[in-house]
Design a protein around this nucleic acid. Structure first.
Lengths: 123, 123
DNA sequence: TTATTTATTCTACATTTGTAGAATAAATTC
DNA sequence: GAATTTATTCTACAAATGTAGAATAAATAA
């Protein structure tokens, strides 16, 4: 379940589009585009890693993610929390709000998200 | 400023202890400990990368971090935010609170952290 | 003071990653 | 139907990573 930087980038595109053909991916890359074989290699590696599945159409494939962005990402965050914050999410949260420079509005919206969470957890 | 998994682990130890000698580090590793040369290699790589400095004492060195855990970590988080949340910290925050399973108490404490932040930002 | 331990560097080697050419096969265009 | 384009696989190769032995130098113990 661990992806490298370029693999993440590619997955991110497929997560957003839901499914993608090789050519969609190549199109999406900004200039200077990588060689098509570079993309092909990444697709193969991701398929081998179990991150992507595909459905064959003629001589090409429609790729789709085998796990969601949330699944992948929550693994990553939890890993960060474990490694850097002694397994304490609240310690992380505190760090997070201090370090990421949320503006007034963002803080307010975060606050109401948390309030909702609190409510939804009340018995 | 980019560290690999094992490098992070080592840095984490030094960040906590503030400074450390080779032997402190080796001691801290749980069984089965890595070979001392493995640690030595990591220390050298981290020094070359500019993550660690040292002060020589006889034939050994007292290593210390050249940047703080916060500095390093906020770079990492901001990177995550950029890559996965379209550069929107609040989108990330929302995801975070939903995915990391904070309990009632942790949510409350996070809420008051945010309230403090809001207050401190009011003109 | 010789033997031993310790810290460091150098060398090494397998694995993973970023990148892409060569080869091939299928599909499309002329 | 021959020529070209497209998708995929195979091979390749440099850089980074995880791991550690050999060599060396300095410090310590016997």
């Amino acid at each position: 379940m661990n992806l490298s930087a370029t693999e993440e980038q590619l997955m991110n595109f497929i997560w957003e589009k839901e499914t993608a053909f090789m050519k969609d991916i190549l199109e999406a890359y900004p200039e200077p585009k990588p060689a098509p074989t570079t993309i092909a290699t990444l697709l193969k590696r991701l398929t081998d890693k179990g991150a992507l599945g595909f459905k064959t159409f003629g001589n090409s494939r429609e790729y789709f993610p085998l796990y969601s962005k949330s699944e992948y990402f929550s693994g990553k965050v939890n890993n960060l929390i474990k490694n850097f914050f002694n397994d304490s999410p609240s310690q992380f949260a505190s760090f997070f709000t201090k370090e990421t420079n949320l503006n007034q509005e963002q803080l307010e919206s975060l606050k109401s998200i948390i309030e909702d969470q609190i409510k939804s957890k009340k018995p």
